[in-house]
Design a protein around this nucleic acid. Structure first.
Lengths: 226, 226
DNA sequence: TAATATCTACCTTCACGTAGGTAGATTATC
DNA sequence: GATAATCTACCTACGTGAAGGTAGATATTA
């Protein structure tokens, strides 16, 4: 037992060091593969969820063998964590860019909602991963960053400012998140859920425009009325 | 090979017949166990999702051994299917009861939303299972009934009637589902998602009342305005 | 020729499904 | 109303396959 654990620990140590070094100075070819793995993984995790997702599928989709994934990501959990945090940061950054320039609280809120909607429509895999995330009880693995927390912070800065300025009726950011922002997620996730006759393409300009208008109406009603 | 398959088939045949008979006239003790298994399974499936859920956990929670579950449910999938369809029918029935008496389209819509909210608050495991369901692409297993389809039908009867009567602005039931009804689900699922400081109890009367008011406001805005 | 990148082959674990057994309750038979 | 036959509601033990992880060999590129 002990003589089998010992070399393992040493190997792990070496491997970890090697990987950390690689993260600092990586070669272009490997970098592209790494990105491909992340993209493929996002698709698979979105389709099946963490537990049902198989690394085999990810590898197949990239066009490599499964153990090659381990070369870039020590294990399934860390691959998932990186997919997830990649989504968070991309979404947050996208929101920040979209809110640039808007100063009026309502304009800022609508810009925020538009940004979410557009982001999720353009990246439906992200929508489904977030959807699953919200069904979970706590954070997955050792990744302490939760989506709703990040999202709530973004919305809070906007809503609280509006309330403080007197433009908005006193309303909690949490309620806006649950009542209004949730709609953007559902709009994307539900697209294929209805029977084939009722299915719709969330990216279809006409439908998207309609739903955006509704979201705006809801947002206005939420912050301007009681 | 053949001499081993033959008795197996016969045994399966007998067992299947016995199970069908049992469904007609089941013993009280077994009935209680069956219910316990369904309840425990709903909890586990809600917490972990289908793939990560282990029958071992379900059995442990009931206080029996895993193979005893197979005595009542032929396999994991069918156990899940029964949990899921149980939720659908209970929710649908609850909605129908709550809408009894209401005749005005808006009253009926608000009663529907209230019913959803109350049902999900009282049964958060159902909320999380539905939440996961919506993240999936198609239906799970061979169960062709999808939640969103059932839910949409309920909402369609109400919304379409209101539109036809001229009480409602022309609006698609799907948009009401995505924009407004989604809020009830999020309200329940998001309760434990925010940091410990921001977590809330969805069943807390004060918070629930506030959120219900918001939902009503949103519903009104959606169907009365554009 | 050294590092980077990818492979083949193997090990281990884990969870489902299946076979077969048994104590106690229930029903049939004398 | 005793006893034999059967059924119910569990159990233990095992087989099996799938998936993740690991070791070490091999190809590629600078």
């Amino acid at each position: 037992m002990a003589d089998r654990d010992a070399p393992k620990t040493v190997n792990w140590g070496r491997e970890t060091v090697a990987k950390i070094e690689r993260q600092v100075a990586r070669q272009p070819r490997g970098d592209a593969t790494r990105r491909s793995i992340l993209d493929a993984a996002e698709q698979v995790f979105a389709d099946l969820g963490y537990a049902a997702a198989r690394l085999e599928d990810v590898a197949l989709s990239v066009g490599i063998r499964r153990p090659s994934i381990v070369y870039y990501f020590p294990n399934k959990q860390q691959l998932y964590d990186e997919v997830e945090s990649g989504i968070f940061t991309a979404m947050h950054q996208f929101v920040m860019e979209r809110m640039q320039g808007a100063v009026d609280p309502l304009d800022r809120l609508l810009a925020l909602l538009d940004a979410w909607l557009d982001f999720l429509v353009a990246r439906p895999t992200a929508a489904r991963i977030i959807q699953r995330l919200i069904a979970d009880l706590g954070p997955r693995g050792d990744n302490p960053v939760k989506f709703s927390e990040t999202a709530l912070r973004d919305i809070e800065t906007v809503v609280d400012a509006g309330v403080k300025a007197g433009t908005f009726h006193p309303v909690s950011a949490m309620h806006i998140l649950n009542g209004v922002a949730a709609g953007a997620l559902f709009y994307v996730c539900n697209a294929g859920q209805l029977g084939t006759d009722r299915s719709y393409d969330p990216a279809d300009p006409e439908g998207l425009k309609q739903f955006r208008t509704l979201l705006h109406t809801l947002a206005r009603a939420a912050v301007l009325a009681g």
